[in-house]
Amino acid sequence: MAEQKLLMTEAQMDKAIHAMAEKVIEDGLSEAVLVGIKTRGVPLAHWLARRLAQITRKTPKVGELDINLYRDDLSEVAEQPIIHKTDIPFSVDNSGIILVDDVLYTGRTIRAALDALIDFGRPKFVRLAVLVDRGWRELPIQAEYVGLTIKTKIDEVVKVMLEECDGKNEVLLKEHFSKRT
């Protein structure tokens, strides 16, 4: 069993997401739509949408994006990833979009998400919101809205647990790579 450390409790996660919502409003982006990156970006996008709705009294639209069809590492993974459903229930053309994901690491997922979004149309702008930025970028990608920035070792794992997927809300730092999901 690898050692693990608690990075964020549910209350801290909520506080961070609330702060993100406030910054989104401050930046004048209350009309933006949210797109969650599967799997854990989707419940996070809904969480952010609820916090935005508390401030503006208007729930932003939330889409779901599966980036597996846009991955750049298919020749390297042992098995074909399972394809999940992409559901963008609004026009991407001319929309302001905030992409939401749990952890920002190499930046390759976001690269794939940008390619996927652009296949749906030409957004007015795309911003990025992540709960945890753990460093080790391999591509020139930065997040506008970040819940927690931490320094990590390359072989550590930041595990964002969400009630919808894992039964509870918390963020853990694990020492070694267990099986990558």
Partner: peptide
């Protein structure tokens, strides 16, 4: 079933 959506897009192509 999860790939059906691709055929309903205006740009019906993914790079996989």
């Amino acid at each position: 079933q999860n790939m059906e959506e691709i055929s309903e897009r205006s740009v019906k192509k993914v790079p996989i």
